[in-house]
């Protein structure tokens, strides 16, 4: 069966990056860049058919907050892959909490970018070793609670070991090891959702006059 073509959008405020990505992805099979934009306003302007996956630069230089941008895109039904030059780990974590499917740096290899796009399209999410490392070294008080197994899988995977090796070292099946990694990502997303729910609840309570502003 022929693999469906993945429609990709790119939102980045650096024209050279936009241009470079267009060139690089143009040569890939089953992949089509349908839109490039320098901000979300441009992205949504005149768009009838939204792409499947959007590569989103975290700092668009327009003052917008990455988490807001991610939520806005997700609400539009787009899977978001964070594509950043040198984002601060806290910003990346916030992006994952906001629901981003994955994180990839602009200096990563093209094959990694392709894997990330395909994973994002399939809905499984893309946890690169770099993202695993960022989650592993999270020292924020609000970080999700990880089990010992999850933490150890994350630690070994973040060092660049293949999942198979990680699984073997922990006497797990590769699927289980993968599941542990995916579970950590979900915990981040859930934590972000909980936080948003709490904010929403508080706003509602303020509106209802239950708690003072």
């Amino acid at each position: 069966m022929t693999e469906a073509v993945i429609r990709v959008g790119v939102i980045d405020d650096h024209p050279i990056v936009l241009h470079g990505l267009e060139k690089a992805l143009h040569e890939q099979e089953n992949l089509m860049i349908t839109v490039t934009a320098t901000d979300l306003g441009n992205f949504f302007d005149g768009q009838e058919a939204l792409p499947d996956v959007v590569l989103l630069d975290l700092d668009l230089g327009d003052g917008s907050r990455p988490a807001d941008n991610i939520r806005r895109l997700m609400e539009a039904g787009v899977s978001v892959l964070v594509f950043s030059a040198a984002a601060h780990p806290a910003t990346v974590r916030a992006a994952i909490r906001a629901g981003a499917a994955g994180y990839i740096t602009k200096t990563d290899a093209l094959e990694d970018l392709m894997s990330a796009i395909r994973s994002a399209r399939s809905g499984s999410g893309w946890v690169s070793p770099a993202l695993a490392f960022i989650m592993l070294t999270d020292d924020a008080p609000s970080r999700p609670q990880l089990s010992t197994q999850e933490r150890e899988v994350l630690r070994l995977y973040s060092t660049g070991l293949p999942v198979k090796v990680v699984a073997k070292r922990m006497d797990l099946s590769p699927e289980t090891a993968k599941e542990y990694i995916a579970r950590v990502r979900r915990k981040y997303r859930d934590a972000g959702r909980d936080a948003r729910s709490k904010i929403d609840l508080r706003l509602r309570a303020v509106e209802d006059g239950i708690i003072p502003e």
Binding site: H14, I16, T107
Partner: peptide, 9 residues
């Protein structure tokens, strides 16, 4: 990064 991706092509 853009140049390495082919941003000048």
């Amino acid at each position: 990064a853009g140049l390495s991706l082919g941003g000048a092509v």
